[in-house]
Amino acid sequence: MIQAIKLTAGKAFPTIEATQLDGTITNMGKAHGDADWQMLVVYRGKHCPLCLRYLNLLETHQAALKAIGISVSAISADSKAQLEESMDQLTITYPIAYGLTEQQMQQLGLYISTPRSEQETEHNFAEPGLFVINEQGLLQAINISNTPFLRPELAVIVRGLNFVRNQENYPIRGNLIY
């Protein structure tokens, strides 16, 4: 039996490298553009309409996140071909990567599912996760779900992160380990 990893708020985000459609290898936990914080959204893949809808909704909040210094990226275990097919349904401008490995899923403490059929997908995939990494590379906020319909509401996340970013020395919450 594999021991599940639980990431702890306030600890360093693991190095997760992945490939974008243009071939760029990216450290998914690093902020980009003018931002100093990074939000990484892990989604199930092209087979999940709820995920694709969430990614499109995330695009509508990207300007508000950028205004408070947070860049956005997304990743799944899909292949390059699957991500290319997904792009027909996505209206996003933030970086999106493919090829998240099961080892990386485990590093992130994500729930992993097997496909119901070959029509869904041919590989195991990660269930949703959302990670906010601060300027020190530490996990500021974590949300992990075992199903695509239990995701945090993006407008609430933006308001909360706006509050945190505008406080002096706001502590990372939930970092006590028992």
Results as ranks from 00 to 15, higher is better:
Ala12Met: 12
Lys66Asn: 11
Phe125Trp: 04
Asn175Gln: 15
Gly174Thr: 07
Gly69Phe: 12
Ser71Glu: 09
Ala4Asp: 10
His61Leu: 02
Gln62Trp: 00
Ala74Ser: 07
Leu176Arg: 14
Pro95Cys: 10
Phe149Lys: 02
Asn175Lys: 14
Phe149Glu: 06
Ser117Ile: 12
Asn124His: 14
Gln38Pro: 08
Lys66Thr: 03
Ser76Lys: 09
Ser79Cys: 05
Asp78Thr: 06
Asp36Lys: 12
Ala67Trp: 03
Val41Trp: 00
Leu21Val: 00
Lys11Cys: 04
Arg173Val: 13
Tyr43Cys: 04
Ala4Glu: 09
Thr101Trp: 01
Cys48Tyr: 13
Phe131Trp: 04
Gln107Arg: 02
Ala81Asn: 09
Lys66Trp: 02
Val72Glu: 11
Thr15Asp: 01
Glu122Lys: 06
Met1Arg: 10
Tyr54Cys: 10
Lys11Gln: 10
Leu90Thr: 03
Met1Gln: 12
Thr8Tyr: 13
Thr121Lys: 13
Met1Asp: 11
Glu122Val: 08
Phe13Ile: 00
Ile16Leu: 02
Leu7Val: 00
Gln119Val: 15
Gln140Arg: 07
Gly33Arg: 06
Ala77Leu: 15
Pro171Glu: 09
Pro152Trp: 00
Asn143Met: 07
Asn56Ile: 01
Glu17Pro: 11
Glu85Gln: 12
Leu7Glu: 01
Leu130Thr: 01
Val156Cys: 02
Cys51Leu: 03
Leu130Arg: 03
Pro14Asp: 02
Ala74Trp: 05
Arg173Gln: 08
Pro171Ala: 11
Gly160Met: 10
Leu138His: 10
Thr19Pro: 02
Ile25Gln: 09
Pro128Cys: 11
Tyr178Thr: 06
Glu153Ser: 14
Thr26Cys: 09
Leu50Tyr: 11
Ala64Gln: 15
Leu52Ile: 03
Asn146Leu: 14
Lys30Asn: 07
Thr147Arg: 15
Glu102Gly: 00
Arg173Leu: 13
Ile2Cys: 11
Ala77Lys: 15
Ile157Asp: 08
Ile16Pro: 00
